[in-house]
Simulated assay, not measured.
Amino acid sequence: MALLDIHQIRNYLPHRYPFLLVDRVLEAVPEERLVALKNVTYNEPFFTGHFPGRPVMPGVLIVEALAQAAALTASYGREDIDTQNRVYYFTGIDKARFKQPVEPGDQLILEVDILRRIKNMWKCKGVATVDGKVAASAEMMFTFKDIV
């Protein structure tokens, strides 16, 4: 059972095809923790060039999926913000590690924990797993800008 489906996620994130990398939110504690899912299919546009004959999801896109989950963590459950007009931006990435390739058919589980928040700056830890094994992890910092 999804806490947020793709239609609801689109209300929180400005990303659209081909760059929306979160398909579902499975669980969430507002401004604290979130678990999301990305179904990785052979039809992803990046697989045509990365790599022909042996498709692998680029590590930077796994980190981007974690960042999108982090933005959802920061805004989910907040009724005091206009999520339709807020954009989150990376301000830093630390300790990024890539442990195993992510391939078509994999289901990427994105777990994000907010480590701290100071005003409009967040720091979080993200871990992406496939079948219970860590595929990638990173500490990320981000901020937001209201675009209206």
Rank of each mutant, 00 (worst) to 15 (best):
G59W: 09
Y88E: 02
V40P: 07
Y17R: 03
P14A: 05
A138T: 07
P101D: 06
F98V: 00
D80Y: 11
N120Y: 07
V35D: 13
T41G: 04
G49M: 13
F51S: 12
A74P: 03
L37T: 03
N43A: 15
P52N: 13
R24Y: 10
V127W: 01
R16A: 07
N120R: 14
P104W: 04
G132T: 06
Y42A: 13
Y88H: 08
N11Q: 15
V29N: 14
A70Y: 05
L108T: 01
P58R: 02
D113I: 10
G105C: 02
A135E: 05
G132C: 03
E64N: 08
F47C: 11
R116E: 15
K133W: 02
A36T: 05
V63M: 06
L37E: 15
E27I: 00
F47S: 11
V25P: 02
D94V: 02
S137P: 05
Y88G: 08
L61P: 08
V56S: 03
Y89F: 15
N11I: 00
P30T: 10
G132F: 04
A135T: 07
G59A: 10
P104I: 09
L110S: 00
L21A: 04
A74C: 15
V35I: 15
T73D: 05
K125F: 12
R24A: 08
R78V: 09
E32D: 13
A136T: 02
D94N: 14
E31M: 13
K133A: 12
F47N: 12
K99W: 06
D106A: 03
L37P: 01
G53E: 07
G59L: 09
M140E: 12
D106H: 14
M57R: 07
K119F: 06
S137Y: 03
R86D: 00
A96E: 12
L66K: 11
A135C: 05
P30F: 13
E79V: 09
A71V: 01
A135D: 05
V63G: 02
R10K: 15
G59T: 11
L21E: 00
S75E: 14
A67K: 09
R24T: 01
